[in-house]
Each structure stands twice: as C-alpha cells, then as structure tokens.
Design a protein around this nucleic acid. Structure first.
Lengths: 334, 334
DNA sequence: TTGTATGCGTTATCAA
DNA sequence: TTGATAACGCATACAA
C-alpha cells in the first residue's frame, strides 16, 4: 500500500506537505504542489479513508434504517436522502430491518461505535426510551413514522388530516358506509389515520361502526383477508379506506375475486401512493406522500444536527396530495 | 468518549488486558475478565470501530453496486447477500447507481480507499478494462450481469438456455409467430436472451423475422411503446417474449388498451419474475431467476476471495425455473 | 512555506 | 496470565 510516507520520500518533501496537497490546503507553493501531485499520480497513491476517519473521528457516512427495502414506498425517500447526502459529500449506509424490530437496536450500535455520523430512521418501532437516549447524544432524525410525546427531530405529513381528506372525498362521492382497513394500532401512524377516518365520518354525521374497522398485516395478503371478512359481514358497505396502498391492492383483488366491479360496485382508496398503485388495474386512488421531499428534508435536518447548527423547527410537516384514479367513484347503489 | 484507557485505569489492569476481554480472547483469568466486563458496563464503554478497522485495515464491510434500487428484481438478491454477509459478520453498503454508468466508477474508489473490503456489482456497465484492473487487485464479484471474455468471478443463470426454454414453451402452445421485446444490445445479457429466442425458433423450423424484434428501455413504458409498434405492423403475431418482466407488463397494458384479451387472443411471457409479476392481472408467465440464491452465492464467493481462499469455480451458473401463470396459453387463432 | 512531532483508539508483539 | 510498547496512516499544533 502506498502511503503519505512513500509519496513524501519520492517527492523529497515531508509528509505534512503531502497531506496538505492531498487536502488542497492553501499554503503550499505552486511548484511543490505540482511536484507532489505528479508523484501521487506516478505512485497511484490513494489516501486511506480509514486513517483519515480515525484521525477526524468522522466517517461522513449516515445510516438509514429502512423497515423493509422490498417496500417501494421507501425507495423514493431513499432517493431524496441520497440526493441530498451526495450534495454534501456524505455516503449513506442502507440498513434493512426486514421488519424485525430487534435489528433496529443493533444498528444503533453502529452509531455508538462511531461508524456513522448520524442516523435517519424510517421506523419508530424501537423502544421510545432508547430512541430518546440516543437522540440526546447523537444526530438522529425520524422520518415517515413518529412517536407519542417524543421530541425527536421528525419529518412527516399530517396523517390525521390526510386520512380525513380522502375519507371526505369518499363521502362527497355519496358513500355513507365506509370501511377501514388498517394495521398495528401500536404504530401512531395508523392510529392517526384511524382518527382522521373517524373525524370525517363524525363531522358529516355518518354512523360509526367499529365492526367495519379491520386490522391485519400491512400487506396485499392482509388487505385481501380483511376485505373478504368485510364482505362476509353482509353489511351495506360501498367503499373502503385502506391505511396503506398494499392493503388497498389486496382489497381490490378480493373484490375482483368476489365478482364485484370497481369502481362501479365499490370504491377503494389507499394511502402512500407507492409505485405499484398507478400501474395496477384499476389504478388506485390514494394519498400521495411527498416521498422525495421527505428524504431531502430529513437529510437537511440531520446535516444541521451533525454540524451543531440550530434547527428551524424540530418537526417538519410536509404537504400531501389526494390523487384520484380509477378505483373510486360515485356511489351508484344509494 | 470512553476508551480502553479509561476502562484499564478504572479496572486497574493494562489496556492490553481490556482489549483481550473485549475481543473475548482465551487467555484471560476468569476473575480479571469479570472485573473488566463489570467496568465496561459501568462506564458504558463502546469499542471504537474506526480505530479497530484502522488497525486491522479491514472494515468488514462490502459494497453492493445496484443499478437501480427502485427495481424490485434486485431486492431479493440484496436479501440473499445481506443474509450471508450477516452470517459472516459483514455489513453491506448499498450503492445505488440510479442507472448512471459513471457512478459505478465513483464507487470503486471506496474500494481503493479501503473503505470496504470487497465489491459485489450487479451491473457490468463499467468499462471492461477498469473492471479487470480492479478485479486483479481487489475482491470483486459480478452477479446477474456479466461481460464478454472477462475472467471476473461471476454468478448468473444461463440466459441463453432460459430464453430458449420459455420460447419453446410458447412454441409448444402452438405459437408460430412470436415477437421479442428487448433492450440495449450492448448488454451481453440481452444478446444472450436474444440468442436463446433465435435458437428456439430455428430449431423448430419457424421463420425468423427481425422486424418482430424490438428494442427499447427495459421499463413498462418501453414495453408499452414497442408492443404498440408491433400491433401496428399488422403481422399475424400471437405471442411475445419480453426480455424483462417490466417490458412484459408494458406489453400487457398495450394489449389491453388495444382491446385484445390475454391469454385468449395473445400470449405474453417475461423474464426475471419480479414481485410485480405475480400480482399484476393477468399474472405473468416468466423465467424465475433464483434471486436469493444468487445473492447468497455471490457473497460466499466474495468471502472466499477476501480471505484468499481458492474458488471452486470462477463462474457459477445457477438454475432457473419456468413459471407458468395467466398471461400465456394455447394459440387459438391457428 | 515547510518540517517535526504527537496523537487518534485499537490490536498485536514481545517480554515478563 | 499479564503488561509495556510499537505500530496502523493520517491530520495538525507548533516550530522553524
């Protein structure tokens, strides 16, 4: 391995001078600099990043904890993070949790051991106490998900109002019996979407029937299962709001399987706007989260944190958008 | 920051002893070990990974160059890599190229600067010369893709025979005029699939019409565009073999748009078996690559390379599988 | 403008 | 079984 020493010897200068040239410091004579650069090229010298990081106690690397890399919802967020990170000369380490909560803790150790300068977590499953403990001492931003009563820096949308908006859209289409497919109520995210659903119904004087609220895994299978359960109830439902697009697609499959036409017989709306949702047939009506922007904003926030700069705001609430496509329409069975 | 020194002082032993305990070396007296462990807990000591890596000149990290993290084809491969890497105590750094060829070169620098111990590239776009130069000196494995006349360690399937097999399946269903949707012929991958297509037709005495071979981006849009072009030709085509599932799904959309029924009027088959393909309706007939196994095998290979162990074989050719679903059937228009 | 010397926190060698 | 000490490759305070 070629080191500064080798370059210094070959160029007839000190290692300090070589180091200065490598880091492009100002106070080096032009001639010296050219000579050293020439030698660096000749010897094909590559600075050892490990030694540099060790010396500076910084890796210019940020770890992103992704609950499930197989879920395309996270891809655009990753793009946003990566885009901004690259701009600032940072690398990102993608840690895939595979939806196993214990892995999250594991990755926080990377932070404690100085392997990374900061963390962006797209998951909030980890025990709140640990989260707060770590956030106290290290730069960390939570995006998409969030915790109750936590003062962690956070980037997200207003899930309550977004859920309310899409349910109100269904109500405007004449639907009065709207079911709700959702997931683990331990996640504040789902509780918020549930609250938005309830608010919309209540404010429009519609009856609330908790039998129409079904819980399952946030997956196509989960949505399929619960849609079938709903159909078996034999109640006069004409629309369903799924708290995630994957569940919505599962619901669409169950409806098709039952011989029901969407949106003629039934309206289905989701949440997130994953890639799949616009390609599936019928294309899904949903809430679009500003995924790229969430990623960008999360990194910007983390960057400030890592550099000890003050945050404009602890929590950023970004705008969402109602995207109306083919899976929803007016209630024709009134 | 708590270091070995602090622990040593507090425990009244030398730093060497602390280091031994941390690394769980054998020759430490039980009592000493217990004492040191107690102090480590009390001080909440975390070994500094940077210093360790610096000392050992190894990061136990492998970089995986992914052409496009938005493409679900790569997810299962990543799972396979990650699964095996974790088993051996390695971390993986996912480098997303975003399909920009220049980024590939950039990431190889991480290798040269000792930030990672090895590379798994799921892309082969980089100039062959650079690839060979790097592979000569550093542990690197190419998976899924591959280059002409290159002696880089490689894990893949036999694309020629797989393409041939799925086209032969179409022929068995009575199809005689089969089109081919494919992408950049600069990629050996696509040339091989094209060759398999041609072989199948030739060996069954079917006419080869190069007007039925269309090139475009390997995306839904690309497939959609070219399927429309094919339909405009007005030739008696009854089936199409797309060299990738995304193109196949684009073709399905174009056929639907044209009012054609799949598989009654037309058969469509793809390649890869991405997640989407089984969920889309109609579900796609395709070639399933053993994605998880490709990932596992690639890491196993890299691991040997990183440890200077001999490779059983330079190139591993894994088995594929023909998956017959709803998008293909017998030719009813003969 | 350049060089000398020290230290980052760990592991590993050697001696005790 | 333990301890003293020398690296690892670089950045930087200080001196020249």
């Amino acid at each position: 391995m070629v080191t500064v020493k080798d370059v210094a010897k070959a160029a007839g200068v000190s290692i300090a001078t070589v180091s200065r040239v490598v880091r492009d410091e100002a106070n080096v004579k032009k001639d010296t600099k050219d000579l050293v650069l020439k030698v660096i090229r000749e010897l094909n010298y590559q600075p050892n990043a490990l030694a540099r990081q060790m010396r500076q106690q910084s890796t210019k690397t940020v770890i992103v904890i992704v609950p499930d890399i197989g879920n395309s919802f996270f891809h655009e967020i990753l793009f946003g993070i990566q885009d901004t990170a690259t701009k600032y000369g940072y690398q990102i380490l993608i840690a895939n949790m595979n939806n196993r909560p214990d892995v999250e803790t594991y990755y926080f150790n990377a932070l404690l051991q100085k392997q990374v300068d900061g963390v962006i977590s797209l998951s909030a499953n980890i025990a709140k106490s640990l989260m707060d403990k770590v956030a106290n001492a290290y730069p960390i931003v939570v995006a998409c998900q969030y915790l109750d009563n936590s003062d962690m820096p956070n980037v997200t949308i207003d899930n309550i109002s977004a859920a309310k908006k899409i349910v109100e859209y269904l109500i405007e289409q004449g639907h009065t019996h709207i079911a709700h497919l959702t997931s683990h109520p331990t996640a504040l995210l789902y509780r918020d979407r549930f609250n938005g659903y309830i608010s919309a119904l209540a404010e429009h004087g519609l009856p609330i029937d908790l039998e129409l609220v079904c819980y399952d895994e946030p997956s196509i299978e989960g949505g399929y299962r619960q849609m079938n359960n709903l159909l078996e109830l034999g109640k006069p439902i004409s629309a369903v709001f799924a708290a995630g697009d994957t569940m919505a697609i599962g619901a669409l499959k169950a409806l098709k399987n039952a011989g029901l036409k969407v949106p003629d017989d039934f309206s289905v709306v989701g949440f997130d706007d994953i890639e799949f949702s616009s390609i599936f047939e019928p294309a899904l009506t949903t809430i679009r989260q500003p995924k790229f922007l969430i990623g960008q904003t999360a990194f910007e926030k983390l960057f400030k944190l890592m550099n000890g700069a003050p945050l404009d705001s602890l929590k950023d609430i970004l705008d969402y958008e109602l995207v109306i496509r083919e899976s929803s329409g007016v209630n024709r069975h009134k």
